[in-house]
Structures are given as structure tokens and as C-alpha cells.
């Protein structure tokens, strides 16, 4: 149990997926204009990453390892993730329209998120079991959600600030992200 908690804290805060591993930067910078959309994106990411780390680790353990074709992991994982996102989208559309309404727009964007593939590969690299993979996936996505919501909050406040012209737009957001990364460095003493 304590192992799982350690994994969770480690991947949510200490080695935060965006701020220290640089995975999933595109949505982090692209969908963080408003807190509302950032929260929507975060929820969708939590949903997809948790599910995909479960599916990927099951496939890895029960299909790739017995057949001794673990070297195909990258190809298999990327196709699995793409198919999974598509499937989740269809499923939500049909059976849970309200959830689809709130998450639907974010789902196609998530396939493009390297964090999903990154988590699946980290799970394999650290030889996590299925339960550990799911916990790691959830925690990583949770860390992503925390940081994207914080960034969106700061960006909303920054909207009317006086920023030097060349720094408007993307550069100031990157500086903000850098300052957040310094703050998250503080967690590294935690474990």
C-alpha cells in the first residue's frame, strides 16, 4: 500500500509530467486560456490516461510478454491508444451524452498528447504491475490536471497585464510555466 502511495506522490508532484518531464506540452500551453476549459481537458486526460495505462499493461503482460514480442511495444501502444480514444468517444456519445457533451471536444486532442504514450512506456520501463500502472497513470494525469488548472488561473489574471510586445502570447506563458517548474522543484525533497 505504501508503495502505491509513494508512486502516486512521486508521479503527481515530484516528477510532474509537464513541468519536469515535458510531456503533453501542447495541450498544456494550448488549452490553458480559461480555467473552465483547462479543467475539462484535465478531466478528459485523467479518464484516458488511467484507462490506457490499464489496457496497455494488460496487453503487455498477457499478450506481448508470453509471445516474446515486447520489442513491438511502441507500435502496439500507439495504435491501442488511438483506438481506445476513438472507442471511448463513441461509447460516451451513445451511452453517456451529458459526459460526452462536457468531454467530447477534448477527446480527439488527447490522442495527440504524448503524455499518454509516455505513461504507458514508463509503466513498462519501471516494470510496474497492473495495479501499480493504473495508480501511476491516474497520479500522472492528476499532476497534469493540477498544473494546467494553476497555469490557466495565472493566465486569466495575466490577461490585462502590461507585457513587452515580443513577450506577448506564448513567451510569457512559457516564463510562467518556468516559474511554476521552479515551485514544483521544491517537491523533490519530498521522497
Amino acid at each position: 500500500m505504501s508503495d502505491l502511495i509513494l508512486i502516486a506522490i512521486g508521479s503527481a508532484l515530484v516528477s510532474n509530467v509537464v513541468l519536469s518531464q515535458f510531456l503533453g506540452l501542447c495541450p498544456f500551453l494550448g488549452v490553458s486560456k480559461k480555467v473552465e476549459t483547462a479543467a475539462g481537458m484535465g478531466t478528459a486526460v485523467i479518464f484516458v490516461i488511467t484507462l490506457s495505462s490499464f489496457v496497455c499493461s494488460v496487453i503487455y503482460k498477457y499478450i506481448l510478454t508470453p509471445l516474446d514480442i515486447t520489442y513491438l511495444q511502441t507500435i502496439v501502444f500507439i495504435l491501442l491508444i488511438a483506438a481506445l480514444v476513438q472507442f471511448v468517444e463513441m461509447f460516451l456519445k451513445k451511452y453517456m451524452p451529458p459526459l460526452y457533451e462536457s468531454l467530447g471536444v477534448y477527446l480527439p486532442l488527447i490522442t495527440t498528447n504524448c503524455a499518454v504514450l509516455g505513461v504507458a512506456l514508463t509503466n513498462v520501463q519501471k516494470s510496474y504491475g497492473i495495479l501499480e500502472s493504473v495508480v501511476n497513470g491516474f497520479a500522472t494525469a492528476f499532476g497534469f490536471t493540477i498544473s494546467i488548472i494553476i497555469l490557466a488561473g495565472i493566465r486569466e489574471k495575466m490577461e490585462y497585464n502590461d507585457i513587452p510586445a515580443p513577450f506577448k502570447g506564448m513567451p510569457i506563458v512559457l516564463v510562467t510555466a518556468g516559474l511554476m517548474a521552479i515551485a514544483f522543484c521544491g517537491f523533490s525533497g519530498l521522497l
Partner: peptide
Amino acid sequence: VLAPGAFFVLACLVAIQNK
């Protein structure tokens, strides 16, 4: 060399490009 530096360097790069 740490993570924050990457963000700062890229921020300056994009700012130069904008300029």
C-alpha cells in the same frame, strides 16, 4: 540545466522570433 531553465530558454527564443 534543470527543468525551469528549458522553459526560460524557449521563452526567450520565441520572444526573439516574435521580434
